[in-house]
Nucleic acid binder design. Structure first.
Lengths: 338, 338
DNA sequence: CTGAAAGCGCTTACAG
DNA sequence: CTGAAAGCGCTTACAG
């Protein structure tokens, strides 16, 4: 079964391929009659255009690459869904590149995306290195970097003000009267995590509360990490009365551990999470948390990319978009009266 | 900045484009010297091949399409990750098509995938209709359908034996001595859900337990759905002593509601979930559940597709792969003594 | 061991 | 309003 090409359609309709192309793309006027003939012919033959040929000729693939560390992480899965959806609305397909936090894989994907001539790339990097980014930007493809800090010379960047968010979460606990405030962090080499901790420290300092090493423990963003972190924090003599946990998954684990150790939440320990995942509001007690504007992150990144793609001017100034997390007070935090 | 093409490389190396192509693809012998010259030249010019041109000529895009109902659902996100990863290992990129359970969108994507000439498709359909599938199979693209029943004439299919799994879960409760066994189902139009309920009924019948309508209530696969379903089941006079919940997310919600109504789990109510998501083992009490072989589902589907792609024989018999869920007994179920 | 050239299926100046 | 033809950047018989 041979493929039906534009040539077949043209022959059957008794016109040139140029005309067929123009009725398909609506790119110059074609007389009613001719147009009908062509459309008839396309239907009869069940013609489907070949994007490859079109892209090769026109230089546009209507495809964007999405590089993420891990799609099976709900945070990125959600972002991927929104990007896919916005892209779809503008006629773009997305190639899913899951780096799995593997820099080698990430680099391979960058080459693949270049080879496949994607029109643009949304890039959530696995690491902090900018080497891959430079490589990509050399190919002259518009790039938007999300969630990670990166030199503005290379790409647009949209990120969350994590420092501020860390500050706000901690300040909330301070305002409730807490002075012994613990923190369960993420892996120490991820910049969002580090920045949230900076905000935590600044809030303490500004309110004359001594920062104590023993109140800070490292987690890994998983439920179990939350279990273990909480156990470490609560098992010390002068235990914290409140804990800022750097993501919701760990926070939910932390609540569970606190309870199984005999502490009530929030009466005995207050807990603030980070992200506002769906579960945060479902869990009992409902989690007070810093709501990340994930949707906004995806939306801003995608819109910016599409804006660049549609204008095709080539000489854009790269921009920086800073988003803000919002404190959502629910049931896991309460005033502390000595 | 003009694009560097194979022609530029050939000129600089003083050879034909044919030779360059052959050193790139390792497709015929090239003398050491010539090869070095070509490679030097590629490096100097920072040459990157253009996949579009290659694909247009060779008929292979090294790309597969993945159609899923919703990537932001953990179940599909996990599947997507595994498919992406296996594809990557074999040199395939994946185009992510999130149908969002929208049949129109799904159809558009099918056309896009056809136009983009993907080598194969893994298809988890939004609906039960096979119309889109026929459309796709006409384009002669190898297809593997996952998770949904579909006529074997159109594609390979890999699915879970949901009826059996429903039976096993229910039988576990019966073996523990329960006779009043409730069920929180999924949306009634999704075939996996219906089949699990069939298994539930068969287990009751085979053990001479009367099926009671009032013990079955419909959920929606969300945490809140589990809350509400459990509330309905427990608030009736002759309440069930055990509940089979058709997915873990609802089961976790059900546990939480049972407890807040003053019932102990598993002493007062036993609960069996379905899926074995990560949280199932993390939650307290750890959830007894039917472990879905999600990995296997993704692996079998991808491997089968790649097998077809690599052999390119054209005339394959479509196959059906049936996978089995496994009962994982943890802490949420206990014997019932009248 | 290598090259000249056709051709994959489109789009798009150019010409009328 | 329409057509003939070049060309996008590759791969691959064919020929030597």
């Amino acid at each position: 079964m041979k493929r039906v090409t534009i040539k077949d359609v043209a022959e059957r309709a008794g016109v040139s391929t140029a005309t067929v192309s123009h009725v398909i793309n609506n790119t110059r006027h074609v007389e009613e009659n001719t147009r009908n003939l062509v459309e008839q012919s396309m239907n009869d033959l069940r013609y489907h255009p070949n994007s490859l040929a079109r892209s090769l000729r026109s230089g546009e693939t209507k495809t964007i690459g999405l590089i993420v560390p891990d799609v099976s992480n709900l945070f990125f899965a959600d972002i991927a869904r929104r990007i896919e959806n916005l892209g779809y609305e503008h006629g773009y397909s997305v190639i899913l590149c899951n780096s799995g936090n593997d820099l080698k894989k990430q680099r391979t994907y960058i080459d693949t995306l270049t080879a496949k001539q994607v029109d643009g790339v949304i890039f959530i990097s696995a690491g902090e290195s900018t080497e891959d980014l430079e490589r990509l930007s050399k190919s002259n493809t518009p790039i938007v970097v999300a969630d990670r800090v990166v030199p503005l010379s290379l790409a647009d960047v949209v990120l969350l003000n994590n420092e501020e968010a860390g500050y706000t979460a901690t300040k909330h606990l301070i305002d409730l009267g807490h002075t012994k405030i613990g923190c369960i962090t993420g892996p120490s080499d991820v910049s969002p995590s580090m920045q949230r901790v900076s905000g935590y420290r600044r809030a303490l300092e500004e309110n004359d509360i001594r920062f104590k090493d023993k109140y800070v423990t490292a987690g890994d963003f998983t439920y179990r990490g939350g279990n273990e972190g909480m156990k470490r924090l609560l098992s010390q003599p002068d235990r914290p009365s409140a804990v800022f946990v750097l993501n919701d998954m760990m926070a939910i684990g932390a609540i569970s551990t606190a309870r199984s150790l005999g502490y009530r939440v929030p009466e005995d320990v207050s807990i603030v999470g980070f992200d506002d995942i769906e579960l945060a509001n479902a869990v009992n007690p409902a989690l007070t948390t810093m709501a990340q504007p994930m949707q906004e992150l995806a939306d801003v990144a995608t819109k910016r990319l599409i804006e660049k793609l549609l204008s095709s001017e080539g000489n854009w100034e790269n921009q920086k978009f800073v988003l803000h997390a919002k404190l959502v007070v629910r049931e896991s935090t309460a005033p502390w009266e000595k």
